[in-house]
Simulated assay, not measured.
Amino acid sequence: MDDNNNLKKIQEAIDSLPDNFSILEEQIDVDLQMEYFDYVKDKRSNEGIEDFDEAERQLNDPALSEDEKKQLLVRLAGHDQVEAFRIIERFHKGQQGVLRNWAVLALQESRMILQSSLLGEQQVFISTGLGGKGQNIRYFIAMMKREIDEPFTETQQKVIENEFQFFLAKGEGEVEEISFVDGLALGLFLFPLKKNLQDIFRSFIDECNQYGNFLREDVIITNVKKLTVEDIKNFLNNQDDLNNHDDEPEQD
């Protein structure tokens, strides 16, 4: 019941989004995103910058610590001036790892603030661990064979690939990757945020199972990160343990 209520609330929030929302395209670890937003909320450390030239010099100073550069990027992103955006943009191009991803988040925030200032209306920004493209969210999916320890046959793989492409295209989505490991079919795909995924996958699995009833009806879908085979099998084992526990008779 709680899960259904949560899904309903999420869908209501999605339905209420304006048409001009933007989605973070990069795949950035969710923990790093949360850290960035914590920096943004820390108003005590987010005073404005008066000298942009000096700020850019500090950003490129090897002696400045990573944490100090993070804070400086957040401060720059808070300005509604093109000059601040250009400084972040130039810095981003020469970075790798954590600071590059941090600069991506700062660029996105700076762009939103500029747009809000120029257009006179609040901008909505959506970020997930797997990012997106345009107004499509990127998802990772794991589909399971009923006999999960047995590999998919070539025919079953072809059925999944063809039907996956067909049903996603029908919903204005796009397949980016699909691979098969033992009894798992793993994929990355893009799908419009405002469209209902459940209906698509219910029809997709029903269609695949016309060719031998080989797919489980439940799938794993996340927009947080790509799961490893070990992650998936651990999750399935935990679910089996919970189901077995629920089936145990109560003791008087």
Rank of each mutant, 00 (worst) to 15 (best):
M1W: 05
D2H: 13
D2Q: 11
D3N: 09
D3G: 03
D3P: 08
N5W: 03
K9G: 06
Q11M: 08
E12M: 04
E12V: 01
F21N: 08
I23A: 11
E25W: 04
E25S: 07
Q27K: 15
I28P: 04
I28E: 02
D29G: 04
V30I: 14
L32R: 02
M34R: 14
Y36P: 02
Y36F: 15
Y39M: 08
V40F: 07
K43V: 08
S45T: 06
D53P: 00
D53S: 01
A55N: 06
L59W: 09
L64T: 12
S65D: 11
D67M: 07
K69I: 10
K70I: 04
L72P: 03
L72R: 05
R75I: 04
R75N: 07
L76H: 10
G78N: 14
H79S: 12
H79W: 03
D80S: 11
Q81P: 00
A84S: 09
F85C: 00
R86E: 10
E89L: 06
R90Y: 02
F91R: 01
F91E: 03
F91H: 04
F91T: 03
G94N: 03
Q96Y: 01
L99V: 05
R100I: 00
A103S: 13
L107N: 04
Q108R: 12
Q108T: 06
Q108A: 09
Q108Y: 07
M112L: 11
I113T: 11
L114Q: 14
L114C: 10
G120H: 06
Q122H: 10
Q122N: 15
Q123W: 03
F125T: 00
F125H: 10
S127P: 08
T128L: 05
N136G: 03
N136A: 03
Y139A: 05
I141A: 13
M144Y: 04
R146Q: 08
E147G: 09
T153Q: 04
T155V: 12
Q156I: 02
Q156H: 08
Q157I: 02
I160N: 02
N162A: 10
F167S: 05
A169P: 10
A169D: 14
E172A: 15
E172F: 15
E172V: 15
E172L: 15
G173M: 11
G173R: 09
E174N: 13
E174P: 10
V175W: 10
E177T: 14
I178G: 10
F180C: 07
A185H: 09
L186I: 14
L186K: 12
K194N: 08
K195M: 14
Q198L: 11
I200E: 05
F201E: 04
F201Y: 14
S203W: 13
E207R: 11
Q210L: 09
L215I: 06
E217G: 15
E217V: 10
V219H: 13
I220H: 12
V224C: 06
K226P: 07
D231E: 08
I232N: 07
K233W: 11
N234Y: 05
F235S: 05
L236F: 04
L236V: 10
Q239V: 10
D240P: 01
H245Y: 02
D247C: 00
D247K: 02
E248M: 09
P249E: 05
Q251A: 02
